[in-house]
């Protein structure tokens, strides 16, 4: 009994500071949004319970639906492009190249920069009198010059490209860590059997990359569904809602328009959307990992 009390005391002493910070400033705010989503609330006065009205309003609001569509498209494009290119880079930089360490460092650099720096950097690149248009002029492709962020489709793709640019290196190092666990002997055995490099990759290497594929796909899918900073800093959701994501809309509604209840409902929709995408994805990828073993 004394032992038990002793154990309980030291457990509490060690755990309580972290638990307090974590629950008060992360878990509680997140969970309480499920209550606020059922209220009409301006963020200042007392919330008034209104049932599911915010959700009804959300699904009748064309701007909100547009934000969902945009978010899903962001997530799909960013996840696919980032993983294809990240994997390709990882495979190339896993080869026997002298300067591969420096090259890895170069491709990883954007990951460590803040989203604010990266957003402004790209804002300048994409400026009508900026670097990208200047390069196009230099190579006599003047016809391709654009007001990149002024056109709906181009603005959307610009956000995708800059987001991929920032995080390719992250996917790359996760694939690299996995690649380094694959024994050379396996690839050599396949080479002796007469398989060429591409066959070796798809038949030997790729199945063994299942664990890093799972992590990377989930990280980039969940991460890109939460995309906020570049939109807030570069396009403000425009032109005409073309680049608005759910998180951007939630921020605008909750803070700028003082519709905290509606904003909370938006956040619940986002959460459900993330679950809806990531849980089946996780289940599928886990099954794939099992089969690979």
């Amino acid at each position: 009994m004394r032992n038990y009390v002793h154990k309980l005391t030291y457990f509490s002493v060690f755990l309580l500071p972290a638990l307090f910070i974590y629950i008060t400033f992360l878990l509680y705010p997140i969970l309480s949004s499920s209550y606020y989503s059922l209220t009409e609330w301006n963020g200042i006065t007392k919330p008034v319970f209104i049932g599911l009205d915010n959700f009804v309003a959300f699904f009748n609001d064309s701007a909100s639906l547009k934000a969902i569509k945009n978010t899903l498209l962001y997530a799909f494009l960013i996840t696919v492009i980032q993983n294809v290119l990240g994997l390709l880079l990882a495979v190339l930089l896993d080869m026997n190249i002298r300067s591969r360490k420096v090259l890895r460092m170069i491709f990883f650099t954007p990951v460590i920069l803040s989203s604010l720096v990266v957003s402004y950097l790209w804002l300048r690149m994409l400026d009508p009198s900026g670097v990208i248009n200047a390069v196009l002029e230099l190579v006599h492709l003047d016809g391709l010059k654009q007001v990149w962020l002024g056109d709906a489709k181009m603005a959307f793709m610009s956000i995708v490209v800059m987001s991929v640019w920032q995080f390719i290196g992250y996917s790359m190092v996760i694939y690299l860590a996995n690649l380094q666990t694959i024994p050379e002997s396996l690839k050599e055995a396949a080479a002796i059997d007469g398989a060429n490099a591409v066959q070796r990759f798809f038949n030997v290497t790729f199945p063994l990359l299942a664990p890093s594929l799972t992590i990377n796909l989930l990280l980039s899918a969940i991460g890109s569904m939460k995309i906020f900073d570049p939109i807030f800093l570069m396009t403000k959701g425009g032109p005409f809602y073309a680049t608005e994501s759910v998180t951007f809309r939630l921020f605008e509604q909750g803070f700028r328009s003082n519709k905290a209840g509606f904003g909370s409902a938006t956040s619940i929709v986002l959460f459900l959307l993330i679950l809806l995408i990531s849980l089946p994805l996780l289940a599928y990828l886990r099954r794939r990992e099992m089969n690979a073993q």
Partner: peptide, 19 residues
Amino acid sequence: FLAGTMLPFQMGMISLYQV
């Protein structure tokens, strides 16, 4: 503790400010 990485923190922004 690990659940925190799954939840989108933007969900809590509004009430975090209240807290």
